[in-house]
């Protein structure tokens, strides 16, 4: 490799040494990430040991681990985790079912497939705010279309978002509608990776379609399904915008996810230090899930190669 920079001496030459080229290229990205992500996180890590409130001018005092203790023993926090788990669990399951069925439908080649596929793929690209606005409109008790359709089945006016169960269902349906196409894409990728000769062999053996699915198709989509579950779990875990717009966490606090609760503690009640402590617990969960996800990605990469 020619050393193009040998003509300059001193610091310039040192910096542009081919040995450092990789590090040099990475530096701008890492610098920006450090300033806008890592440094703020270190700051809030520090804050989580004090009793700082962004709304007050009082000098914060050191409190050790008491914020973590308070957050972890707070029943309210556990309730929010439970709500989040229920929403994440039901939404991801619904996405898997719908996404899988859609994938089976679109696995075939047919005329104008690209255009028809557009109809299904669009929801995924919409903004959470738009989706929130749509569904808020549909659930609107007096003139929402969902409320209107439901009123055909019951004599009373059914207020979808009026009960905790209804509100959770409302949010889950909006989120699952938006993200089922994501699961569909992953399953489609798995379906097309099944070698054709396996199906031909099964044809000769006259294997039932049920058996064909479990012994041929499923092994090929298994790892992608795992990826879908992990990815969607991480993403749904953050659910904020849809809840904020459709129910604002209500009725009561029945749809308040951990993200919405964090927003409230930090920016409505200004318990800055306490929310930082909770944020760190959430961050820890995400780091674990991301690790699992990357593990699944690597396993899948090995299978494909």
């Amino acid at each position: 490799m020619a050393n193009e920079n040998s003509r300059t001496g001193g610091f310039g030459a040192w910096l542009l040494d081919p040995k450092r080229r990789g590090a040099l290229l990475v530096t701008p990205a890492i610098t920006i990430l450090f300033v806008m992500n890592i440094f703020p996180l270190l700051w809030s890590f520090g804050l989580s040991f004090f009793n700082y409130r962004a709304s007050s001018l009082k000098v914060p005092t050191f409190r050790g681990l008491s914020n973590y203790e308070r957050v972890l023993t707070d029943d309210k926090v556990w309730e929010r985790f439970q709500t989040t788990a229920i929403i994440v669990g039901s939404s991801v399951i619904l996405q898997l079912i719908v996404g899988f069925l859609l994938a089976l439908m679109f696995a075939k080649a047919f005329p104008m497939r690209r255009i028809v596929l557009m109809l299904v793929l669009t929801p995924m690209m919409l903004s959470f705010v738009s989706v929130g606005v749509f569904f808020k409109l549909f659930y609107e008790p007096t003139f929402g279309v969902v409320s209107y359709l439901l009123s055909n089945f019951s004599d009373d006016r059914f207020v979808v978002l009026g009960t905790p169960a209804g509100a959770i269902a409302g949010i889950v349906i909006a989120d699952a509608w938006m993200w089922s196409p994501f699961v569909m894409l992953l399953v489609l990728a798995g379906l097309v990776s099944v070698p054709k000769y396996l199906y031909e062999a099964a044809e000769i053996d006259r294997a039932s379609s049920w058996r064909r699915f479990w012994t041929i198709t499923f092994p090929y989509i298994k790892s992608l399904l795992l990826l879908a579950v992990l990815f969607r779990t991480i993403e749904t875990f953050k659910l904020f915008d849809i809840v904020y717009i459709i129910t604002e966490g209500g009725p009561g606090s029945s749809t308040e996810t951990i993200a919405v609760y964090l927003y409230r503690t930090a920016f409505q009640f200004f318990r800055t230090s306490q929310s930082s402590a909770l944020a760190y617990i959430v961050l820890f969960i995400v780091v674990v899930l991301t690790n699992l996800y990357l593990y699944a990605v690597n396993r899948r990469a090995e299978e494909v190669d």
Partner: peptide, 13 residues
């Protein structure tokens, strides 16, 4: 991957 709400608290400050 981390929820934006986690990082926004210190960024806001």
């Amino acid at each position: 991957m981390m929820p934006p709400i986690v990082v926004i608290i210190p960024i806001f400050l």
